[in-house]
Amino acid sequence: MKLSLTVNGRQESLDVEVGTSLLHVLREQLGLTGTKEGCAEGECGACTVLRDGKPIDSCIMAAHACEQSEITTIEVIGDSPDHPSELQNCLVESGGIQCGFCTPGFVMVLTALLKVNAAPTDAEIKHALAGNICRCTGYAQIIEAVIATAKTHQ
């Protein structure tokens, strides 16, 4: 069935089978492979994208349910690959990235958090990250990176 989607500000016209996840369309049809598939069942947050500015798991979001939404993926966070966002810089510096598989999902959720709360507390950061799993870092460095990002904005 026809699907028109707005991804990262671009209007896309596609033919997609009904019931396909947004994640599948992003990765397999639009070639936006920055968004990762971990669990494919809404548990790990690796596939997080913003839908009208709100974080959602794209693995359990029907692509056709996004026709009237603005989708934002990791590809447009930061100005360019050479000029990452402040949060991305802080994640690198704090050691909040190891294998990096979870990172796009964390960046999307944290970008959404910092937009509504420029100086989140430890508890607020942990709360926002309840739906994101990282197998490598132990989270402390990720939280540190958010706090460092908030400081650069003060």
Partner: peptide
């Protein structure tokens, strides 16, 4: 289909295989 968080998982596991969805979230 509202948010689809239950449906998408039930569909993936093969519990359901609907031919037609009525999306009501809009």
């Amino acid at each position: 289909m509202a948010g689809g968080t239950d449906i998408m998982i039930q569909q993936r596991t093969g519990d359901i295989d609907p031919r037609r969805y009525l999306h009501i979230e809009r």
